[in-house]
């Protein structure tokens, strides 16, 4: 999902050269529309790739959903039932034209894709959203704490542990969390079970999956926040603020953070993609009722409409988050440069 709203507006430490670029804010709606159109096109290409890729894999949805012992004629019947006897381009076109009406097609097992995603997708959004929130709060807090006294004990400890955890894959964190907090201490549930409405039966069930997802991302983002603050602190206006004798926390909240905001928001936005990717693994370990399990099974089943459905909804969310991050950056830089 490439494309930036502000292009090359922000070059190096802001305001160093003192020039004033054209007011980005004025052209914002136009740019937003352009970016949206570009992202939609990209998503369409991606979805076409999904259909093409599934086509290239050995086997198809008919063989994947058949039972041993079905004759060639039975398979042909199944293929016809699923529409697999038609060219892939035609199937993709049919599927795409259903999208504007909210019709995501039918899975290889005859269930409506929209129904299959109706519960899991909000669940994944909840998980990812909470993990993003935890990541944001924790990394900004820790980053600021570390940046408060560069080179101090806290800074060294935070930076070192951030480097340590960012290298940890989600599944390692997840398995360790289950072992410690569920099986040894029995403080939290080991897996997520759902109640009659299809959502997690208790908030406690969210704690471990959210942590498993957030910990590696916190590691990543703490470093970004820390670096952005360090970068920003060399700016002339910060030095002025320090020389003016402004309180430390005021410099942080009113001068340092606003300046570092574009970088931080970009880092967090990148994490959104990582969080959704990690969710597939984490959901399996915690039996979390999200789209991870849907996606994994759909790939096994060569279920193009279902895979494309998952890609479409996640792609839309990712585009939204990236757009938001771009807007934040545009706003933060546009207002200051």
């Amino acid at each position: 999902m490439a494309g930036s709203l502000i292009g090359a507006v922000r070059r190096g430490p802001a305001g160093v050269d003192g020039s004033r670029p054209a007011p980005a804010v004025v052209r914002l709606p136009l740019r937003v529309a352009a970016v949206l159109a570009r992202r939609a096109l990209l998503l369409a290409v991606l979805l076409a790739c999904v259909f093409a890729a599934v086509e290239l894999l050995p086997g198809d949805a008919a063989t994947a959903t058949s039972e041993r012992g079905e004759s060639a004629a039975d398979l042909a019947q199944r293929r016809q039932l699923l529409g697999l006897d038609r060219p892939v381009a035609e199937r993709f076109w049919d599927w795409t034209t259903g999208l504007p009406t909210g019709d995501l097609g039918t899975s290889a097992r005859g269930e409506a894709v929209a129904d299959l995603l109706a519960r899991p997708f909000p669940n994944t959004l909840l998980l990812g959203g909470l993990a993003l929130l935890v990541t944001l709060v924790a990394s900004v807090t820790l980053g600021c704490w570390a940046a408060a006294r560069p080179g101090g004990k806290v800074d060294r400890a935070v930076s070192a542990s951030a480097t340590g955890v960012l290298a940890l894959p989600e599944f390692v964190v997840a398995v360790a969390l289950v072992l410690v907090f569920a099986l040894w201490t029995d403080w939290l549930p080991a897996v997520t079970l759902t109640d009659a409405d299809g959502s997690p039966a208790s908030w406690k069930m969210l704690v471990l999956p959210v942590l498993a997802l957030a910990v590696p991302q916190i590691g990543w983002n703490v470093r970004i926040v820390r670096a952005a603050l360090a970068d920003e602190s060399t700016a002339p206006h910060i030095e002025t603020a320090v020389l003016d004798g402004l309180p430390r926390h005021r410099i942080l909240t009113h001068h340092l953070l606003p300046g570092a905001l574009p970088t931080i928001s970009a880092g967090i936005a990148t994490s959104t993609g990582m969080l959704l990717g990690g969710a597939v693994v984490v959901e399996t370990i915690f039996n979390y009722p999200g789209i991870g399990s849907v996606l994994a099974g759909a790939v096994t089943d060569r279920d193009s409409p279902l895979i494309a459905g998952v890609v479409a909804v996640t792609g839309a969310v990712l585009s939204g988050v990236l757009l938001l991050a771009d807007l934040v950056r545009a706003w933060a830089s546009g207002g200051r440069t």
């Binding site: 099986l183 029995d186 080991a190 897996v191 959901e283 399996t284 039996n287």
Partner: peptide, 18 residues
């Protein structure tokens, strides 16, 4: 209760959730 992995299912049993 549906489980995508036997590991998660075993954990649920060992933790007394099923």
């Amino acid at each position: 209760k549906i489980f995508a992995s036997p590991q998660a299912m075993a954990n649920a049993l060992l933790a007394g959730q099923i």
